[in-house]
């Protein structure tokens, strides 16, 4: 570009006006902010939220209290005990304590579980009002959705 052209470009503020047009285009562009309580972002399928236990099709616990998760857990989140029940080859879990405050959401327990009893849920709302609620005991691990929220903080989000 010749010197004169550069001078004229500077003099008529060409680049500045072009920049203003670019920002004006962005002014009307779609926004990335999501207004949280009204709209919740769709979570990816492998989202690592709260851990949950699952039941099988008959409504019996999938967990066989094999303690695989307890052994692999790097932060010792679990405290599990099972007992023998008649007509069943595997153990029946009687104690399944999970300490949310220790969990790093590494996912090793989910990977190691032989029966896929423990899985990540997409639940990201972990607000608590009582310190004790940070320990999950056996039946709590089956809760989900609003029931879980009610258990955690007594419906404080409403």
């Amino acid at each position: 570009m010749t010197g004169l052209a550069r001078f004229l470009k500077k003099f008529f503020l060409v680049d500045i006006l072009r920049g203003l047009l670019i920002t004006l285009r962005y002014y009307f562009s779609p926004k990335v902010t999501i207004q949280y309580p009204e709209r919740v972002r769709e979570l990816p399928p492998r989202y690592k939220g709260l851990l949950r236990l699952h039941l099988d099709a008959k409504g019996e616990p999938l967990c066989i209290a094999c303690l695989a998760c307890q052994r692999i857990c790097p932060t010792h989140c679990f405290d599990i005990a099972g007992e023998r029940v008649p007509q069943r080859k595997t153990l029946w879990p009687v104690r399944y304590d999970w300490k949310l405050e220790r969990c790093t959401f590494c996912g090793l327990c989910v990977e190691i579980c032989p029966t896929s009893a423990i899985r990540f849920s997409p639940e990201f709302r972990m607000t608590l009002l009582e310190k004790d609620k940070v320990r999950f005991h056996y039946p709590d691990m089956y809760l989900e959705g609003e029931e879980l929220q009610k258990h955690l903080c007594g419906g404080c989000l409403e």
Binding site: Y26, Y27, K31, T33
Partner: peptide
């Protein structure tokens, strides 16, 4: 508001 809208925020 205007700066936010230009930056893709609300």
């Amino acid at each position: 508001r205007v700066v936010a809208l230009i930056q893709g925020r609300l």
